[in-house]
Write a protein that binds this DNA or RNA. Structure first.
Length: 508
RNA sequence: GCCGCGUUGGUCAAGGGGUUAAGACGCCUCCCUUUCACGGAGGAAUCACGGGUUCGAAUCCCGUACGUGGUACCA
């Protein structure tokens, strides 16, 4: 039984980023495909960075996406506690074990001392400014100090960190499920801090300890973690053995649409699209960042567009349901290179899903959109008919407002500019007569309405086409919407006549 | 600077020694529609560069360039 986990920290300000959701998604797909458990872990390594409400928010996002974890800090499981701040003692135990075995050491250097070390290295023209085997014997740590000196510092409660001792000249290799064999020369790896002065572990220690204790078999994370992989491999070797180490997959990055670099929240603000799954309100600044959900994306589309950003099944298929993704997903087909995010294409996916989804499944969301604008759609079958008629023209959910509100309420203003230029007395007379004709009409359906309209137009010697646009604007309020005669049919005879009368008057 | 990873149209991408180098988004033209769309038919646009290997390279190898990530008591 495999156990796949995603682990990530909310960003310093909170919110769940596109890349985060995609990492979760790939985890989920892999776990479900192989019948494994899907675990979501959230870190709060640094309390000052951890924003209140961030955990709940993240799980709300995942729920919206349909990615329910089997185990998580909120959903429980056999390995509680899951929150890192509640596991401090566990990490400390392993950190000390490493010191004991000679794979790690106490370091008492102050930030200023480390800064000074870097200055010296820089002055010497050294190619690396890391705290590593080149410099550690010049520093204030238990490797250089005599055991008594170290003990004395410890006894005096001198602040310390625990660093991993990386021996140079060795090779650390592992097989990444996406990238294949990766090789690192330990000469370039620095003595990373494992355990911080505040008693919390760094990611490096925590990820290894937790993955072991929670029996994780597969670990997925972003490509940005690749450079620190050798530290994690070394820790696995020292602590639990490489034979029980999980398999790694380093996912490609999602990049800015323009320019270069990782996609960030600021890019969304700057270019006018969301980067978070759902609206996130920063509890400190009270700033709200727009989410895909609130801007009108369907979860199906959101998942779909994320899945094909960096993955492709090798066929021409682009639209996938979550079930299809589970069936077809494979890590071998995941790209190695980062992909730029394209909002235009993202919207196209949503449009496709609106077309694909049945009217019934759209009803709830459309009703919500209408209600937000004060339109109550009580009649279920009427609402369904409207949705079927307008969904072709909707890309985002709020598009349903413009495309269908006139089916429920009389327009409050008319785009008179669209007709005014060609408006004249003949046309005015036509519409006045049309009202009378409509009044006498016994069968009210699209075909009868159209026939009546065209017959009168021929009688009056006006091209029907010249009159259709005015009629549309009268009924709809603007130059959009489904076929006019269908609209007239739908809104009913009285309402049609009323709108024609009102608008004719306005046009003068 | 050093280390890692990458590089097929503007973007997402298929293709992994012999292809007219798929497809999608976007853009343009036309058809359908006297609204806006949907739909349909076309079009412009790509193998980063230089060396090898080979009868033959987008595909394999080596350089270079470029991009990106890391280089924190952040994750």
């Amino acid at each position: 039984m495999s156990k796949v986990r995603v682990r990530f920290a909310p960003s310093p300000t909170g919110g769940l980023h596109l890349g985060g959701v995609r990492t979760v998604l790939f985890n989920y797909l892999f776990a479900k495909k192989h019948g494994g458990d899907f675990i979501v872990r959230i870190e709060d390594t640094d309390q000052t960075r951890f924003v209140k409400g961030a955990e709940e928010y993240i799980f709300e996002c995942l729920q919206w996406c349909g990615l329910q974890p089997d185990e998580s800090v909120l959903h429980g499981g056999p390995f509680t506690p899951y929150r890192q701040s509640e596991r401090k003692d566990i990490y400390k135990k392993y950190a000390l074990q490493l010191v004991e075995a000679g794979h790690a050491y106490y370091a008492f250097d102050t930030p200023e001392e480390i800064e000074r070390m870097r200055e010296v290295l820089k002055a010497k023209g050294s190619s690396s400014l890391q705290y590593d085997h080149h410099v550690r014997m010049n520093m204030n740590n238990s490797l250089r100090l005599l055991p008594e000196e170290t003990q004395a510092l410890l006894d005096k409660n001198t602040p310390y960190v625990i660093r991993i001792k990386v021996n140079p000249g060795e090779h650390v290799t592992f097989t990444d499920m996406i990238r294949g064999d990766i090789d690192f020369d330990t000469s370039n790896v620095d003595d990373k801090v494992l355990f911080k002065a505040d008693g919390m572990p760094t990611y490096h220690l925590a990820v290894v300890v937790d993955d072991h204790l929670m029996e994780i078999s597969h670990a997925f994370r972003g490509e940005e973690w690749l450079p620190s992989a050798p530290v994690h491999i070394l820790l696995w070797k020292y602590l639990f053995g490489l034979d029980v180490m999980p398999k790694w997959a380093h996912l490609p990055l999602i990049l800015k649409p323009d320019g270069n670099g990782k996609l960030s929240k600021r890019d969304g603000d700057r270019l006018g699209f969301p980067v978070y799954a759902m609206d996130w309100k920063d509890p400190i600044t009270n700033d709200t960042t727009k989410g895909f959900k609130e801007i009108g994306f369907l979860p199906e589309a959101f998942i779909n567009l994320l899945a094909v950003l960096g993955w492709n099944d090798g066929t021409e298929q682009e639209i996938f349901s979550l079930d299809e993704l589970i069936e077809k997903f494979s890590l071998e087909k995941v790209h190695k290179a980062g992909a730029k995010f394209d909002y235009e294409k993202a919207k196209w996916f949503n449009h496709q899903w609106i077309q694909k989804l049945e009217v019934g499944s759209l009803k709830l969301e459309v009703r919500k959109q209408l209600e937000k604008n004060g339109i109550v759609a009580n009649d279920d079958s009427y609402l369904e008919k409207v949705i079927a008629l307008v969904k072709d023209r909707c890309t985002l959910l709020p598009d349903f407002i413009q495309q269908s509100s006139f089916f429920f309420t009389t327009p409050t203003h008319w785009d008179t500019e669209a007709v005014k230029a060609k408006w004249n007395n003949d046309k005015k007379e036509f519409f006045t007569l049309l009202i009378a004709k409509f009044n006498d009409l016994t069968t009210w359906d699209a075909i009868s309405i159209e026939n009546e309209f065209k017959t009168l137009a021929t009688e009056k010697n006006i091209k029907p086409g010249e009159l259709q646009l005015p009629l549309r604007v009268m009924l709809v309020g603007g130059k959009f919407g489904p076929p006019v005669f269908t609209i007239a049919d739908m809104i009913g005879k009285d309402e049609t006549i009323k709108r024609i009368a009102t608008a004719t008057e306005i046009l003068g």
